[in-house]
Design a protein around this nucleic acid. Structure first.
Length: 412
RNA sequence: GGAGGGGUGGCCGAGCGGUCAAUGGCAGCAGACUGUAAAUCUGCCGACGGAAGUCUACGUAGGUUCAAAUCCUACCCCCUCCA
């Protein structure tokens, strides 16, 4: 039973499954229905790109902008100097200044495909909390902000409790994190008139701390809204693969790989993901759900990839898919590796697998071959010397398993 | 500062002088079945080498021993309790 909302954003967000928890959905709805407000989403600068795990809150922020609200995207250049301890077993490494500034720039760019930034109307604004956090002085901060944080309440935060209950290392540095994020909210409430902070459900404690701080210090009402923690149907964390996170920036995850990630989601996730990560109408999604799953997965992959990397990235990806999985013509976007002619009759297929990067060591290449997972032109191969017959018209398709392949081209 | 416990391969976690490149689980890779899915089953899963084998690895640095992840010493880090 879905609550009935007056504001169109909450209606849509709810229908799509973007909402997990809020401080007061009823009052928030009333506030949103009154007219445009500003809201913010913060992501720490832990890497040079955000990843699929961040995508859900970003989609929610985007939805708010679509409905006329003003989004503020925050980069945690300041908070990243501490590191959010929430629900992690180990402390985050302390980043060097250079690494940090690279990360900040990368996170900024990660937001760009999803949020329209500018200075007019409800254009979004990008801010870095280092702007105010770096200037804080310890004693004034303790006196002005610290006094509003009863230790008992801090200790009762789930993120803190988990650390303590499990005897995990937990320093005073990390203990301060919720105060700083709370202070961010206060600062953005004052300078950007943000009345709402959104985030993943793991941010609940941090966000609520801010809501409370704003009430205590400014006697203003502010709201928290979180997105659900996403796991795949089989329980794995969203956005993780063997290679690690699925990054949003093309420099860290090629559009082809990104597309493949969505193309290969589990059957049971397709409908849910279409609602969460695309902007197709709910009717259209219902149609897709009742038709062929694989077709629906392609739509999902196209939509998410198109939004993230631009529509222009799609034709090339489709061509590569055709070539790789359906025996189509050689596609430009399938990677190539050029083979010096001197290798013929001298180097082996093992060498080729390693040199081209399909395998990371000769041992791995041998094992792959022994297990029957190495192919030349779709024919399983033995450990053998590279011969001219492997190439037709100077080209050979080399595959490691069924999903990784490249073209080896003879240099002329 | 004191007492005790602990640091093992991507993660968890056995081992506690030789048979340990290190049991097991998870993750991963490949194969089979399928649908570029899930589940299941099979094989693989440090590097080099065709192989025999060689090398590098059990917090760091030394030492004892024919032989050390296993014993000793110092140091570093983490946890618990005490002050």
């Amino acid at each position: 039973m879905s609550p009935s909302f007056r504001s169109s954003v909450l209606q849509e967000a709810w229908a799509r499954g973007l909402i997990h928890q809020s401080t007061d959905l009823g009052r928030l709805d009333a506030r949103l229905a009154e007219g445009p407000v500003s809201l913010y989403l913060g992501c720490d600068a832990t890497a040079e790109s955000l990843h699929v795990g961040h995508l859900l809150p970003i989609m929610l922020l985007r939805l708010f902008q679509k409905h006329g609200y003003r989004p503020v995207a925050l980069v945690g250049g300041g908070t990243s100097k501490i590191g959010d301890p929430s629900f992690r077993n180990t402390a985050r490494p302390i980043l060097s200044e250079e690494a940090l500034s690279k990360n900040v720039a990368g996170v900024r760019r990660s937001y760009e495909p999803y949020i329209r930034f500018g200075t007019a109307g409800n254009d979004g604004k990008l801010v870095d909390n280092a702007e105010w956090l770096d200037r804080l002085e310890y004693i004034p901060f303790l006196r002005d902000i610290g006094q509003h944080f009863p230790v008992g309440r801090l200790l009762s935060l789930d993120s803190v409790k988990q650390k303590l209950d499990n005897n995990l290392p937990f320093s005073f540095l990390e203990f301060n994190y919720p105060l700083l994020q709370a202070y961010d909210f206060l600062e953005l409430a004052r300078r950007e008139h943000c009345v709402l902070q959104i985030g993943g459900s793991d941010q609940w404690g941090n966000i609520v701390s801010g809501v409370e701080l704003i009430r205590r210090m400014d006697q203003q009402e502010a709201f928290a809204l979180t997105t659900p923690l996403l796991t795949t149907a089989s329980g794995a964390k969203m956005g993780k693969t063997a290679q690690g996170a699925v990054w949003l920036r093309p420099e860290f995850c090629a559009p082809f790989e990104f597309w493949q990630y969505w193309r290969n989601v589990e059957d049971q996730d397709v409908g849910r993901f279409l609602r969460l990560f695309t902007e197709l109408s709910l009717e259209k999604i219902a149609d897709l759900e009742s038709s062929d799953v694989n077709a629906a997965k392609v739509v999902l992959a196209d939509q998410v990839t198109g939004l993230t990397h631009g529509q222009g990235a799609l034709p090339e990806i489709h061509q590569a898919v055709q070539a790789l999985f359906y025996g189509g013509e050689a596609a430009e976007s399938v990677p190539t590796f050029s083979v010096p002619p001197t290798w013929l009759g001298k180097k082996t297929i093992v060498d080729l697998l390693v040199e081209s990067g399909l395998c990371t060591s000769r041992g791995e290449a041998r094992r792959l071959i022994r297990g029957g997972g190495a192919y030349m032109n779709d024919q399983a191969v033995q450990e053998e010397t590279l011969e001219a017959r492997h190439f037709s018209e100077g080209k050979a398709k080399v595959s490691a398993g069924k999903k990784r392949a490249l073209y080896a081209c003879l240099q002329s």
